[in-house]
Simulated scan of single mutants.
Amino acid sequence: MAKSLGLAIATAKCPCCREGNLFPVSPFSYRKLSATQKHCEVCGSNLIPEPGFYDGAMYISYAFSVALVITSLVSVTVLVEDPKLWMYMATVVVLNIILLPAMLRYSKTLYQYAAGKLKYRGD
């Protein structure tokens, strides 16, 4: 059964077969944060087409970080009557630490789907 594009991205699967994992560990794991599979274990596609390919994912990761900062600052402002500076800082730091693996890996996943030359082959 073929997975939809959205489900394949959400589960960090290979763009060609949408079955093999892009990462050796879960996208939410703190282990091997920068590790990416070299080849898909299902279809054998090359997931790292050139040295430094995933460097472009930094732009997506930066957008995730900016969105997280803006969301957390607005949330603290709305939820706390008289917020102090340390509340803003603590919220941003804690959320960045908690969401670091997901933001890093999903930025790579989105970059692979957007800029990678791999296209879905279907069944």
Rank of each mutant, 00 (worst) to 15 (best):
M1Q: 11
A2K: 02
K3T: 09
K3C: 09
S4R: 14
S4G: 15
L5I: 11
G6K: 10
L7N: 10
A8G: 05
I9Y: 03
I9H: 04
T11C: 08
A12V: 11
A12H: 03
K13L: 14
K13V: 07
C14V: 05
P15Y: 01
C16K: 13
C17W: 03
R18G: 09
R18M: 12
R18A: 07
N21R: 13
N21F: 10
F23K: 06
F23H: 08
F23L: 05
V25W: 04
P27D: 05
F28Q: 07
F28I: 10
Y30F: 13
Y30S: 09
Y30M: 06
R31C: 03
K32I: 04
K32A: 08
K32G: 04
L33E: 10
A35D: 08
A35E: 13
T36D: 00
T36S: 04
Q37W: 02
Q37L: 09
K38I: 08
G44P: 02
S45D: 04
E50A: 09
E50T: 04
P51S: 02
G52S: 05
D55I: 02
D55V: 02
G56F: 11
A57I: 01
A57Q: 03
A57F: 03
A57K: 00
M58R: 12
M58E: 13
I60L: 07
Y62Q: 08
A63R: 05
F64W: 06
S65V: 05
A67N: 02
L68A: 14
L68V: 05
V69A: 15
V69Q: 09
I70E: 02
V74Y: 06
V74G: 01
S75T: 10
S75F: 12
T77D: 13
V78K: 05
V78M: 09
V80T: 15
E81P: 11
D82V: 13
D82T: 12
K84A: 09
W86S: 10
M89T: 14
A90S: 15
A90I: 14
V92L: 09
V92D: 12
V92R: 00
V93C: 11
L95D: 08
L100Y: 08
A102L: 14
M103R: 12
L104E: 08
Y106R: 04
Y106M: 14
S107A: 15
Y111M: 09
Y113T: 14
A114C: 10
A114V: 15
A115N: 09
G116N: 09
K117C: 06
K119I: 13
K119H: 13
Y120H: 15
Y120T: 15
Y120Q: 09
Y120L: 06
G122S: 06
